[in-house]
């Protein structure tokens, strides 16, 4: 037996205490941050009872809201929410594609990239509800302000994702089109778009999921969708109505998520 090497290797065994120190520091940090930030004042107005009522609302949603086909009925509100999310995605994509191209290192000069990328970062840093308020101030309350809000949010995320895929494209194909004497437009149409279309579609569908989901809170700033009614219902504690709206929202979002996952998977299988 190799005693000296054994001893040597035994000494190299890592000490156990650092993980306890790190763990201890992390726990202390969380406790301190908790005390700095959160003051727990206990439940308001029999909070537990309200949880039970909320659950009851989910089990027994209000049929009046579900069967109402008018503008304050569930169906119309969901349709408006969907429309805002859908249009926001479409318009956002239309703006994001050219923006992504001029932000990509391999398409436009560097100084242009830096300006547009900075612009994209700033767009992304702001919460979408803030845009909601600003657009309501600009074009008035209603679904149109919501569409604009969703558009600007989509531009931020989609162009960032697209820049990554544009910068990944194979330069050989563009070179060969160059050699064939193609114009700039032809290069984009025949050299770049075929390489990008599936990743763009997949990103756009992913964004559609998010947009429809987020469109449901625009009502908070009077920018359309189911949000306004939902907030009123929570404020006045109409639990049956909340139940109906939450179920509607869940079904709508799950349906879109399901469809978009299906399409994205089939695209991924094809490429």
């Amino acid at each position: 037996m190799n005693t000296s090497l054994l001893e040597q290797q035994y000494k190299r065994y890592p000490k156990a205490w650092p993980q306890f120190v790190i763990g201890f520091v992390a726990i202390v940090a969380v406790i301190i941050i908790w005390n700095v930030t959160v003051s727990f004042g206990g439940f308001t107005e029999r909070g537990w009872g309200m949880l039970a009522l909320a659950f009851q609302g989910l089990v027994r949603p209000s049929w009046a809201v579900i069967s109402d086909l008018g503008p304050t009925g569930l169906l119309m509100m969901l349709a408006e929410t969907f429309a805002i999310g859908f249009l926001g995605t479409v318009f956002g994509t239309i703006i994001a594609i050219p923006l992504a191209f001029i932000s990509s290192r391999n398409i436009a000069p560097r100084w242009v990239n830096i300006i547009t990328l900075g612009f994209i970062t700033i767009i992304r840093a702001f919460p979408s509800l803030m845009y909601g308020i600003m657009f309501v101030k600009t074009v008035g309350t209603g679904a149109f302000a919501g569409v604009l809000t969703m558009t600007i949010g989509s531009v931020g995320m989609l162009s960032k994702m697209m820049v990554e895929s544009v910068e990944d494209i194979d330069p050989g194909i563009i070179e060969s089109l160059d050699a064939a004497g193609c114009t700039g437009f032809q290069k984009v149409r025949y050299g770049i778009m075929p390489q990008l279309s599936s990743s763009i579609i997949s990103n756009v569908l992913y964004r559609l999921d998010i947009n429809v989901k987020n469109a449901s809170v625009l009502g908070l700033v009077s920018a359309g969708g189911i949000g306004a009614q939902l907030i009123f219902a929570i404020q006045s504690r109409r639990w049956d109505d909340i139940g109906a709206m939450v179920w509607g929202l869940v079904i709508l979002v799950l349906a879109i998520e399901y469809a978009s996952t299906k399409i994205r998977n089939s695209l991924a299988a094809k490429s």
């Binding site: 930030t37 959160v38 003051s39 727990f40 004042g41 439940f43 308001t44 909070g47 309200m50 949880l51 929570i234 404020q235 504690r237």
Partner: peptide, 9 residues
């Protein structure tokens, strides 16, 4: 917020 009151909690 409705259940717990206004605040970071």
């Amino acid at each position: 917020r409705t259940v717990l009151g206004i605040g970071a909690m």
